[in-house]
Design a protein around this nucleic acid. Structure first.
Length: 572
DNA sequence: GCCGTTTTCGGCCCGACTGTTTTCAGTCG
């Protein structure tokens, strides 16, 4: 059973308890436990199977540990089942409507018989809500609008899309007089694979702030002004993305950046730590009583809490504060550490550029090598190569190398893993390749057991070097195929196969949690763009972001090796 | 419901904005 599923049980409990108005700290406990489950790399069900002590996990005590065991063993949770009986099933969903919290849900249910989103909409349109406690006509309008937005499913956006929006809006705000630095904080700065909104922080003289806010709420691409205050405003763009702008003075910059970068969990952990030291942390600074002792920079903010600066990618409360405390933060990999790209396609299959064009583009990026890895014949739609075509293609790579200087093109292939775990091409041709990536493009609908067995068999082929986009997921579009990734990584470690982080922002596969698990299990990783055009080689940065979020250092990633060392590694 | 370098009981992060109010509750991040 997936951790996410268990986490969902606890979030449901929290929702229902909130609506019932129970002790907020008890509710938070359930949410904390859910988050622990979502973030941890080990599988909770496996831990239960091994008889591990779950109360060792943060935020999980005796009561919740028992509930986890019950869920794992029976697939059900009596406590939740009983809770659900007491309220209409549509109530928790109402919490997803912007501006509606547990108190309103309770109010609407008890005083207006609202038990679902449809009924809420009807009640709002019929004017049956104003007159209730602190409810006016404007509140009804907001609810109708919020329900429309919810139905549109604005949801989350891919990181690369987020960057595009962020750049456009900061370019728009920058020319205004009095505006200093403009920084996109939030999940974008932490380089999460998706973002829920944009948090833009502006350093601005006090007297220019109103003008900045005025300009912001009039942004061309804005569809709706959600809030318009003197230090904080929010708009929704036509595409559905919410953008928050926060204005602060320079002396608060560090504390503000820290606060708005998050994550929320990281901030809460910092604040708890501060409390223990007799300090208080807010977006304005770090305070002892009324006196501000730090906050101008992130560095001095962390230092006042007796911590080194923590890279934004690590700020998820996944152990970074403890590591920082002990001076054991990883020396994270950087884009400049990458010396080559080991997965890409050319015009020989479904790419847009030739071998030489790809090589020259890679050389411009400062690379020493690339591997050209066409699809194999099973991927018919992409013009995959059979043994004969691949043999001819490898000769073309030799010829290209003869003409090129300052960069080496490695002979590679992205060979498909068939349904039974055999490979789409014969060993005799794989043997001729310097880089063999094995990957799945078909038959996703196997059981977890079959899929795991299939992949393990493929990784046992002696010529396979890299497991390509190992879970097959597409960000926001397709769930991963069912697979026991722990078993796959274990096999990869034993067989000397590298686990890939496919850097394309629509894949990022492995993801951060799995890549960290791979590192901890002793696997090596590669970060490859899977570029289908020369311009896409620049997507490497997204893979590096994910690697950083996975705590990877230069030495965990094989394509940081110089060519010689890489070749030695591949010829294991 | 969880947690403990002062605690096994009594805490549990902090502040802005909105809509409704004459001082604040609710929601959000």
């Amino acid at each position: 059973m997936e951790n996410e599923k268990i986490a969902r049980y606890f979030n449901e409990i929290a929702d229902i308890l909130e609506i019932r108005g129970e002790n907020p700290f008890r509710i938070r406990s359930y949410r904390n436990a859910a988050r622990t489950l979502e973030d941890m790399s080990e599988n909770a069900a496996s831990l239960v199977g091994e008889g591990a002590d779950l109360t060792k996990l943060p935020g999980i005590g005796g009561s919740i540990a028992d509930k986890i065991k019950e869920i794992v063993k029976t697939g059900k949770l009596t406590f939740l089942h009983d809770l659900k009986k007491e309220l209409p099933s549509g109530l928790p969903e109402l919490l997803k409507i912007e501006g509606i919290g547990p108190k309103k849900v309770k109010l609407f249910y008890e005083k207006a018989g609202v038990s679902s989103i449809d009924r809420l909409e009807k009640a709002a349109r019929a004017g049956k809500l104003h007159g209730l406690f602190r409810m006016g006509e404007k509140s009804e309008e907001k609810i109708i609008k919020a329900i429309e937005n919810y139905r549109k499913g604005a949801g989350r956006f891919r990181l690369d899309i987020g960057f595009t929006y962020a750049r456009a809006i900061t370019d728009y705000l920058k020319p205004l007089k009095g505006v200093g630095e403009l920084i996109s904080a939030g999940s974008l700065r932490r380089r999460r694979e998706t973002i829920g909104d944009l948090d833009i922080l502006a350093i601005c003289a006090k007297k220019s702030a109103p003008d900045l806010m005025e300009r912001f709420v009039k942004y061309d691409d804005g569809e709706e002004v959600i809030a318009h205050g003197s230090t904080k405003s929010s708009i929704r763009l036509t595409g559905g993305l919410q953008v928050d702008l926060r204005v602060l003075e320079k002396k608060h910059f560090g504390a503000a950046l820290l606060y708005f970068t998050g994550s929320k969990a990281h901030n809460i952990a910092l604040r708890k730590r501060a409390q223990g030291m007799g300090l208080k942390v807010s977006e304005y600074g770090i305070f002892r009583k009324e006196k501000m002792i730090a906050g101008a920079t992130e560095d001095d903010s962390y230092r006042s809490l007796k911590l080194p600066w923590i890279p934004p990618e690590l700020r998820e409360d996944r152990g970074e504060i403890e590591a920082a405390e002990k001076g054991k933060l990883p020396d994270l990999i950087e884009l400049k550490d990458i010396r080559g790209d080991l997965q890409m396609h050319t015009t020989a299959s479904d790419g847009k550029n030739t071998i030489e064009e790809m090589a020259r583009a890679a050389k411009k990026l400062g690379y020493e090598y690339i591997a050209v890895t066409e699809h194999s014949k099973a991927v018919k739609v992409a013009g995959g190569l059979d043994e004969k075509a691949l043999a001819a293609h490898l000769k073309l790579i030799d010829k290209a190398n003869a003409r090129l200087s300052g960069i080496r093109v490695l002979k590679g292939v992205e060979v498909d893993i068939m349904g039974d775990g055999t490979l789409d091409l014969k060993d005799s041709i794989l043997k001729e390749c310097e880089v063999v990536i094995a990957a799945i493009h078909y038959k996703f609908n196997l059981s977890e057991k079959e899929m795991t067995k299939r992949i393990i068999r493929a990784l046992q082929n002696r010529y396979v070097n890299i497991m390509g986009h190992p879970t097959g997921r597409l960000v926001l579009e397709r769930e991963p195929y069912p697979v026991n990734i722990e078993e796959v990584i274990k096999t990869a470690v034993n067989e000397g196969v590298v686990m890939e982080i496919d850097a394309h922002p629509s894949r990022l596969d492995l993801n951060d949690v799995h890549a960290r698990m791979a590192k901890e299990m002793g696997a090596k990783l590669s970060i490859d763009t899977d570029a289908h055009a020369a311009s896409q080689l620049e997507l490497m940065q997204y893979g590096v972001f994910t690697a950083r979020r996975a705590w990877l250092t230069k030495k965990d990633v094989v394509n940081t090796h110089p060519l010689k060392k890489l070749l030695a590694f591949l010829n294991r």
